[in-house]
């Protein structure tokens, strides 16, 4: 069956084995693949790096949540959707969390029937959010690069008496010779002029 090869892989983090077993069964029933069931302090960071789960489901009371949050804040550690569950969560609290923009879901207790919807929605929301964020970051970097290049060009023109085209060509040649991005070369030029200025 092709669906099987595409099944989302899930990592479960819960200090209560009985509850975790219940949730694992619910996930299996909905054809998710549970690749690990951990309690806290079992080296979450290493396990995520090794097993690369598609989704992480974690008890809101787990001490491992800070580890997870750190991992998702780093670009190099490929972020993934996190679903949280809490037994004391009331509907109002969930609504408030959603309005606040939580990329994860807070489940009130563990209703196996709702597991599939919740995981699917969390994954969808996460992907949407990631796409938006990437777009925003790209725009921002482009803008910052542009500014940097213009400033370095201006400095070269002023300090070395070059015209705009000459300044630009000099920077481009330097970038090609060194295998650097134009913005990096611009940054270096600015740093050197700032150093000489002081």
């Amino acid at each position: 069956m092709t669906a099987k090869s595409k099944a989302l892989t899930v990592m479960l983090v819960d200090d209560q084995p009985a509850r975790a077993a219940l949730l694992e069964q619910a996930l299996l029933d909905h054809s998710y693949k549970v690749i690990a069931r951990l309690s806290s302090a079992e080296g979450l960071a290493g396990q995520v790096a090794r097993l690369q789960p598609d989704v992480i489901i974690i008890d809101i009371e787990s001490p491992d949540r800070d580890t997870l949050e750190h991992m998702t804040s780093l670009h190099r550690d490929n972020p993934r959707p996190v679903v949280m569950f809490s037994e004391e969560g009331d509907t109002k609290a969930i609504e408030r969390a959603m309005r606040a923009g939580v990329s994860a879901y807070i489940v009130d207790g563990l209703n196996p029937a709702r597991v599939k919807t919740i995981v699917d929605v969390a994954v969808a929301r996460f992907r949407e959010y990631q796409a938006l964020r990437r777009e925003l970051e790209e725009t921002r970097t482009q803008l910052a690069d542009r500014k940097q290049i213009d400033r370095a060009k201006g400095l070269l023109m002023k300090q070395r008496g070059l015209d705009e085209q000459q300044a630009y060509n000099a920077m481009r040649k330097m970038a090609m010779d060194r295998g650097q991005r134009l913005a990096e070369v611009a940054g270096n030029i600015i740093a050197v002029f700032e150093l000489l200025d002081n």
Partner: peptide, 14 residues
């Protein structure tokens, strides 16, 4: 149990 938990509980009013 965690700083993330404190923040989230403040936000949802727990």
């Amino acid at each position: 149990a965690s700083w993330a938990n404190i923040r989230d509980k403040l936000i949802v009013g727990h």
